[in-house]
Design a protein around this nucleic acid. Structure first.
Length: 488
RNA sequence: GGCCCCUUCGUCUAGUCAGGCCUAGGACACCAGGUUUUCAUCCUGGCGACAGGGGUUCGAAUCCCCUAGGGGUCACCA
């Protein structure tokens, strides 16, 4: 009977949720869900300077927006709580004391000044900066006496001789020479434990079986494996996910563009599109299928299939995927998701859109194939909300209309004709209009370009008879009349 | 610089662990054409890669070695 898979996502609440972190969470989640395991969230708030509760809330919101859910966490609790590291201090102290008592850790009385000096010397000699382990030789009784006397100290892990190897689902077996591992600090002068220490204590206490995290943590792993063993805990299996890179080929950062998950939510990207895109960074379903659901991911995902090389974040591909999801969505749901963006653009308030819901759904039906993000909608439909005598004319649209010498007369004539049969409906009017153009031995654009300018002011857009249906009889006829005057 | 990791079209990737099915497949982007009242969608086609060099083998993108390039990390941050 194999033990239950337990994986975790452990963000530190020091800022917004990064898309790279979101992908780590996504893969952890998919791994757990695909194996009937448990996905838990733990907040790594051991840095009181930078940790903020608002950030924690935002991170949780972001994960939920992406479509993830969790079985244990700071908001839902669970059998292995608390799920904030700052609330687990007791346990951390207990384990640190144990290590000290067993001689697997030692007090270090070297202050910041000496450490800085040491580092400077080492750098001057082109050596790799590392603690010189001077305090290893302080005898236990002297160490205890100095501590009791109030002398400041940190607790360092005593790295043994030899080498450390561990299983990594992505990179196979990895080995580090212990000589390369520093006697790192477990507990600071102020008594607060550091990341490398608490992460192991908590993962072990929370019975985490697989640690899937970003590759930047690979070098921390030997320290942690050594700690698991010193503590007598089972070492989990690791999986170091390749980094997500910016277009400059370096680790994704603020400089290379949007990196916060919230930027994409605020930018009107469908969450399904972003989740799908994130799946494609370092993993592929079959090399052919690009668009797939989280459900499919869960069915097919395996950490062992994750690639080793970093991947450059391609905003163009994300935009394309966004369009795919928008086109596949229902006009009703699109209306719901787009409404806030239309309201934010100041075109109409939320109440008005709610009142005109059927109409707004029709608007989405006509624009659906032209937008990729919800945020692209307002600019496309602003003309619907403009005053009939003040529709903004786009330069290109104006040029298109002016190409036709008789545009003005034609619009007047057509307007009068249209007034008689507007109520026959879009399909009938469309056919009749085409016949009307043919009768006059004209090309279609001769009428349609000026007409599009009159109604929308834009160079492109939906079928004009659908546009007229959205505008209604009065507005349509008025705009055609006004255009005749404006073109004069 | 030390240590560690990585390397298939501009980008995301399939294929690599089990060498032949690969004159390397798909997608985004780009270009050209078609459809349309325009824009978009959609359809068709094009461009385009096994980092380099050795070796093993009848046969290598796939195995081995070397070189080069890129990245990560070297905190009393996480």
């Amino acid at each position: 009977m194999p033990e239950t898979v337990r994986v975790r996502f452990a963000p530190s609440p020091t800022g917004k949720l990064h898309v790279g972190g979101a992908r780590t969470a996504l893969f952890n989640w998919a791994f757990a869900r695909g194996r009937g395991g448990v996905f838990l969230l733990r907040i790594e708030d051991t840095d009181p300077e930078r940790s903020r509760r608002e950030h924690e809330a935002e991170i949780l919101e972001g994960l939920a927006w992406l479509g993830l859910d969790w079985d244990e966490g700071p908001d839902v609790g669970g059998p292995h709580g608390p799920y904030r590291q700052s609330e687990r201090l007791e346990r951390h102290r207990e384990l640190a004391d144990r290590l000290l008592a067993e001689g697997r850790a030692y007090r270090c009385f070297c202050g910041p000044e000496r450490l800085a000096e040491l580092r400077a010397e080492q750098e001057a000699r082109k050596q790799t900066p590392a603690y010189d382990r001077r305090c290893r030789s302080v005898a236990p009784d002297e160490s205890a006496r100095r501590a009791a006397a109030g002398e400041a100290f940190t607790l360092r892990f005593l790295v043994p001789e030899g080498e450390t190897r561990f299983r990594d689902a992505v990179r196979r077996d990895v080995t580090f020479a212990n000589a390369e591992v520093d006697d790192w600090i477990m507990v600071r002068t102020d008594g607060k434990p550091t990341y490398n220490f608490v992460v192991v204590c908590d993962d072990a206490d929370m019975a985490v079986t697989h640690v899937l995290r970003g590759e930047e943590h690979l070098v921390n792993t030997p320290k942690q494996v050594l700690l698991y063993r010193a503590l007598g805990f089972d070492v989990p299996e690791f999986g170091h996910l390749p980094l997500m890179l910016g277009t400059d080929g370096r680790k994704l950062s603020k400089r290379t563009g949007d990196t916060a998950l919230a930027d994409y939510r605020d930018g009107g990207y469908p969450p399904e599109a972003l989740a799908n895109f994130l799946c494609l960074q370092g993993w592929a379903l079959d090399g052919e299928t690009e668009v797939f659901s989280l459900e499919t991911l869960v069915e097919r995902f395996d950490v062992a299939d994750v690639g080793k090389a970093g991947s450059v974040f391609d905003p163009d591909k994300l935009l394309w995927l966004a369009g795919e999801y928008v086109r596949a969505d229902s006009p009703e749901r699109l209306a719901e998701r787009c409404a806030p963006f239309v309201a934010a653009a100041g075109l109409a308030d939320a109440d008005e859109l709610e009142r005109r819901r059927p109409w707004f759904v029709d608007v989405l039906r006509t624009e659906q194939e032209r937008i990729r993000t919800y945020a692209e909608l307002p600019a496309r439909i602003a003309y619907l909300f403009a005053a009939d005598d003040a529709v903004e004319y786009d330069d290109k649209a104006l040029k298109n209309a002016r190409k036709h010498a008789r545009a003005r007369e034609l619009l007047e004539e057509y307007g009068a004709w249209l007034a008689e049969r507007f109520d026959e409906g879009p399909d009938a009017v469309r056919e009749a209009t085409k016949a009307w153009v043919v009768e006059r031995e004209l090309k279609m654009p001769v009428l349609f370009q000026p007409l599009r300018l009159a109604l929308t002011g834009l160079p492109g857009g939906p079928d004009l008879f659908e546009v007229m249906a959205l505008l209604g009889r009065d507005a349509s006829l008025r705009r055609i009349r006004v255009a005749g005057e404006r073109l004069a």
